[in-house]
Design a protein around this nucleic acid. Structure first.
Lengths: 139, 139
DNA sequence: GATACAATCTCCAGCCACTGGAGATTCAAG
DNA sequence: CTTGAATCTCCAGTGGCTGGAGATTGTATC
């Protein structure tokens, strides 16, 4: 039961090797042992942990949020209200970003749809960028 | 007509002083002159340019895109198809991000809605993060 | 056992788009 | 002329990685 090398863990968790080392540096994960030559050795528990981290990152959680969530996950007997709070506040931020992005799309759509494809001097895209007042006013 | 100082320009364009200096460093804007003591001096044209940059940034354009758009804006007699292409490709990316974010919101919503508010050992939030298969499968 | 070559090691730099601070200098008002 | 705000340059840090240099280790083949 030698454990697996960092490269294999990277494949399993669909991560880059450097990313794993970076996560170690910031204290999110660490190998259960090292080989005689100094290579990191990981077990299945580490793979689960790394997948947890990656999944949370995919869902847009920040590193500090993930640190808290990992801490909670490590202590299954505590109340999950903390996890709930983190997830809810994250959801709120996602919804905020969504709103902004939707307004943005509207604006960009109007810009490109009204472009007459002539000279820059009459280009709607450039015009709108030059003058905020010509926006629809959503942002 | 001494021109205005960087602080005033910053107020006018709703930017930070450092940001203006940064834009100068990367070659987006530069003062038309310097005072005897070395302070940057800007004119109304600079203000328009900076507003253009800020507006494009607000709309999510990257610095390199802005550099191109500025170049187009500086040459009003060229075809605006380049501007159109930039804006369109940007719109596409925004729509992509929107789709991702919408899937994300769905996932997060499900997560927090199904949280039973008990112990972490049964927390839906932690569970979903631990196991991608428990996602709705949208991402 | 020797050799070749892939994988890993540490350390450091860079990405984007700023932001902040230190310490020195200049400007504008009174 | 003094004072205090504004500006100057230079450097470091943010988040979340990513890539490379140069040295070492691990493993498969002969």
């Amino acid at each position: 039961m030698a454990g697996m090398a960092i490269g294999k863990l990277a494949v399993i968790a669909a991560t880059k090797v450097q990313t794993i080392r970076y996560y170690e540096e910031i204290g999110l994960i660490r190998p259960f042992a090292r080989s005689e030559g100094g290579h990191r050795l990981y077990g299945p528990e580490d793979a689960r942990r790394l997948k947890f981290i990656r999944h949370a990152r995919e869902l847009g959680f920040g590193i500090e949020e993930i640190r808290e969530l990992l801490h909670l996950s490590d202590n299954p007997d505590t109340s999950c209200s903390a996890a709930d709070i983190i997830a809810r506040s994250h959801l709120e931020q996602v919804e905020l970003r969504l709103k902004k992005l939707q307004a943005l799309r509207k604006e960009l759509k109007r810009m490109v749809e009204e472009c007459g494809h002539g000279r820059v001097s009459h280009c709607r895209v450039i015009e709108v960028l030059s003058d905020h007042k010509r926006c629809g006013g959503e942002h």
